[in-house]
């Protein structure tokens, strides 16, 4: 239990998808113009990461990694399908996004109206595939840890995009050197936010 909480906190603050790994930057920069839309996208990312990381974990554990097919019989112990992991992960992500979209549309039209347009965008968000790839690389011990990593990364991404959107809303009234306006200053602010987030590294978990 302790490790699950520690992974959760760590992936929000220290191991932040945006500030430490720059993942999901494209949508981060494109959608962060107002707080309202960025909240929508942020929630969608939490949602999708929380689902795809554990699903990919199971896939990796019982299908892809070396010796994962052992449950089929001793003859399969040598099979190593890990070269297929990229394509399997992206397929899972694309189909999960589609599935989530259909489920939400069916059961909660209100939520669908606010999240709907963001869901297809997420399939090619690097943060989602990055989540699965980091999960694979870090060799989490069980599905609980993987889920907590997925959700934590999503929350971290949510915090980052809402934070930058709030700053961008205010900064519209500032007098920024013309060539730096828009994209340039957003990069620099993200960098400064990243430096601020680095102070969380001191947290002992």
């Amino acid at each position: 239990m302790e490790d699950i909480i520690s992974i959760f906190i760590r992936s929000i603050f220290i191991d932040n998808m945006i500030f430490a790994y720059f993942l999901g930057m494209c949508s981060y920069l494109a959608v962060s113009k107002t707080v309202k839309t960025s909240v929508g996208l942020g929630i969608a990312v939490i949602f999708v990461l929380g689902i795809t990381v554990p699903v990919d974990y199971l896939l990796n554990e019982y299908l892809l990694s070396a010796g994962a097919l052992r449950w089929l019989g001793p003859g399969f112990a040598e099979v190593d399908l890990s070269f297929l992991s990229f394509i399997m992960f992206i397929a899972v992500i694309a189909s999960m996004v589609q599935l989530v979209e259909m489920v939400i549309e069916k059961f909660s039209p209100a939520l669908y109206n606010s999240l709907g347009i963001f869901l297809p965008l997420i399939a090619v968000n690097c943060a989602i595939l990055g989540g699965s790839l980091f999960m694979q690389e870090r060799e989490y011990a069980n599905i609980g840890q993987a889920t907590s990593f997925g959700l934590g990364s999503g929350v971290g991404w949510f915090l980052a995009i809402v934070g930058i959107a709030a700053i961008r809303e205010k900064i519209r009234y500032s007098d920024i050197p013309a060539p730096l306006r828009g994209l340039g200053i957003t990069f620099i602010i993200t960098g400064l936010m990243g430096i601020a987030f680095m102070s969380f590294m001191g947290i002992k978990l």
Binding site: F22, A178, T186, F187, I188, T190, G194
Partner: peptide, 22 residues
């Protein structure tokens, strides 16, 4: 040491954009 840390990459790109647009 700051240059090695991730945030500086963003700031450098910011500066490149600045120079390019200037």
């Amino acid at each position: 040491g700051l240059m090695i840390l991730p945030p500086m990459a963003l700031i450098i790109v910011g500066i490149i954009i600045w120079i390019q647009r200037y």
